[in-house]
Each structure stands twice: as structure tokens, then as C-alpha cells.
Amino acid sequence: MKKLFKIIRSSLSDFILKLNSRNIIIVVFLIIIVLYLGFSIVAPIKKLNQLNRVGTDCQQEIPEAYTWLNEQPEFFSMNKNKTFLESRLIMSKSDSIGLAVNIPDSIIAIEIKGIILHSARIEKYRVGRFFIGLEGQVYINLFSSPLRIKQYDATIAKEPVIIKKAPKDTIEAAKSLVFPDTLQKEPTYIIFVLNNGFRLFIEQEKAGSFKAAKTRVLFRAGNQLKQACENFLYMLRFQIPPYNPAIRIYVAREDAVAIYRALPESALVTIKI
């Protein structure tokens, strides 16, 4: 052990003695990486603790003394159902189209004033461990009212506008007739960032083609890089970056398109996990 310590000490002193610009860059880079890793790993734990500590204030009709009931699985499951229904009722008061995501029942639906316009089956889903770590009462408080879409991004256009210049005469008009290509199926990958930072991914179930697989990889990588850059900026200010837990839902491509195009800019979303 002593020998090993001696070797480490001598190699470290060698390294310090031989400090040149390249080694300095390596050291700085390693420090940055370690800091980045540290901050990023601490972020979800901090958020979870913060929510579990602050968010247990009861907002429901259950007396505060009974909040422990939400740790009882059967009761919690019932209460989650109640929360979801109440959240849908709140959403129904809005005039615009909203999204209801019911993960246990594998149903995603778009609704307006409580009327289900389109319902689709969730083929697969992935819910972050963050949500499993939430205290029962915190979950209830987080999802007791609809969340709002703050930001969105997708691999398809929200409005697939085709620009057409007015033809000069009837001959040009006949030439410029446009008919939609029914065989063209754009890979569909969507992300909704909700007002509390949660990210809801809606993706087509199967990649199917090389183009779709490539789009998926690029879309995911782009999102991760964007997130990493944001986190990096926080790290430079020595702040713990905000953690945005994700829910990933896989549905049929047509359903994903319909959902994305139907939802207005800052639509309401109600979720049951």
C-alpha cells in the first residue's frame, strides 16, 4: 500500500514538474468533466428532495393528518385516479384542445371540454425513476391540476405549409397543381416541455426505416446536447442545473402526428403515471 502511495506521489510530482500546455488543458478538461458530472448527478436528487420536502403541503380534501395514506399502495392508486379525473375536469373548463395521458391504462387522448376527440393506445412507455421516487402526496400535488406546454419541438412541421406563387396565366396554373404525396411518411418524434420542467416525449412506435432510425438518433442526440449545453452554462456559474425528468411514450405514427398538430401552442396536459 505504501509502495503504491509512493508510486502515485512520484508520478503526480512528475506530472506537475512536466506541466506543459497540453497537460494543463487535460487537467482543466478533467476538472470540467468531473464538475459537470457532479452537478448533473446531484441535480435530480436535489430536485426530488426539494419536492418531497416542500411539496407535501396538502392541497386536497384529505385532512393533512391523513397524508400518510398516500404511502398505502391501494389507497394511493385510488387517489391517483381521483387526481387524474379532477385534473381532466379542470382541463375541460378550457376552450382549447388539451392532452390527457393515462399511462397505467395505456391511453393517450386529445380532449376539448371533456369530449374525447381522439384516443390512441400507448404501445410502450418509459417513465423516469424520478417519478417513482416521489412521495405519494407530492405526486398528488404535482398532478392535481393540468400542466401547460411551455415549449415544444418535433421532427414534423406543426403546420405543413406549402408556399405557392400565384400563377401568371391559366397555363402556368395548370402546371402548378399540387397534390399531396400520400406515400410520404415523415418520421415523427415530439417533445413537449411542460411548465414545471417535465419533458414529455411522444415518439412513433417503430423506426421502420433507416430514415426514421436516423431521425430518431439525431432528434434524441440534439435534445441531449441542448440539455447538456444548458447544464454546462449553469455549471460555469457554479449552480446546480435544473433537472427535467422525462416521460417517453410510444404511439403509432399517425396518432403522434394527429396529437402534435391538434394541440395549440400552450395546451394543457394532464397526466396519470
Binding site: 448533473s40 448527478i41 441535480a43 435530480p44 436528487i45 425513476r129 417513482i132
Partner: peptide, 9 residues
């Protein structure tokens, strides 16, 4: 890494 290090209840 973030996922696996989150404490699960």
C-alpha cells in the same frame, strides 16, 4: 447515470 443514481422509494 442520473437515472440510476436517483433513490427509489
Amino acid at each position: 447515470l442520473q437515472e440510476i443514481l436517483i433513490p427509489v422509494k
